[in-house]
Design a protein around this nucleic acid. Sequence first.
DNA 1: TATATTAATCGTAATATTGCAATGTATTAA
DNA 2: TTAATACATTGCAATATTACGATTAATATA
Lengths: 110, 110
Amino acid sequence: MGITKSEIFTEQQNEIALIAKAFGHPARVAILQHLFKMQTCICGDLVEEIGLAQPTISQHLKELKNLGLIKGNVEGTSVCYCINEDKWNEALGLFKEFLELQPNTVNSCK
Amino acid sequence: MGITKSEIFTEQQNEIALIAKAFGHPARVAILQHLFKMQTCICGDLVEEIGLAQPTISQHLKELKNLGLIKGNVEGTSVCYCINEDKWNEALGLFKEFLELQPNTVNSCK
DNA sequence: TATATTAATCGTAATATTGCAATGTATTAA
DNA sequence: TTAATACATTGCAATATTACGATTAATATA
C-alpha cells in the first residue's frame, strides 16, 4: 500500500531506515556534502550548485531539517543552513553499528 | 515527477543514494541484520522472523540482490541467501567516506 | 511606500514504493 | 504421476516521492 509497517520493526531498525531514506536521494547527498565543505550555505547557493529548481531544493532541505540532520536560521532575506552535529553524530553511530556487522568469512552461499 | 534526475549528480553521489535507498526500509535492514547473524537463511525464515507476507519479503530480497548486496542460490526447493561480502565492503567504504565528513566544530548557524 | 530578493508553500503531474492475494514454477517426496 | 514445498511473478490498490510553475511571505533597499 505504499505504506511501511513500521510497527513490526525495532526502533533501531526504523531509525536506521529513516536516516537511510534521507540519504537515498543524490540531491540530499549533494546538499550534505556541500554543507560539510562550506560549513554553512543558503538555499540559493544549493540551487546554483546542484541545478534543481528552487522549490525542489527547498523541499529536500525541509526533509533534512525535519529529520534533524541540518539546522537553518533566518538571516535577513535568506536562510543559513548547516549540519546539526549532534544528530549527525547520532546517525554516524547508528550506521557504524549497522554497517560494521562483519560478514563471517565462511558463508555457504554462491 | 517521482523520477530522480541522476544525470546531474556525480557517480559517487548516485551510488551512495542507491545503496542508502536499499537501507531505507526497515524490512531490508532486518533482512540484512538477520543474514549477518545467521550467515545464511532462506526466504521462509525471513517471512517468519519478520512477519510480512512471502511475496513482500521476496520483493525486498530481489531489490537487495539486484543491487548486489546479497547473493542467493537454489538448494532443492528453497533458496539460500547470504551477504555478498565484496559489495558490502564496497558499500562500507562509500558510507565511511560520506559519513565521516567531520563537521567543523565552528559553524555559525543555530 | 514601492520594489527587489530570498525562500517557503501550494497545487499538480508523473512516477516509485509498499504490501498482498492469486497464480506460476521448480524441485522433491510419495 | 501426483501432491507437497518453497519461492518468484503478476496484478492491483494505496500511498509516497520527485519535480516544478505559480504564488505567497518576509525582509531589505531605493
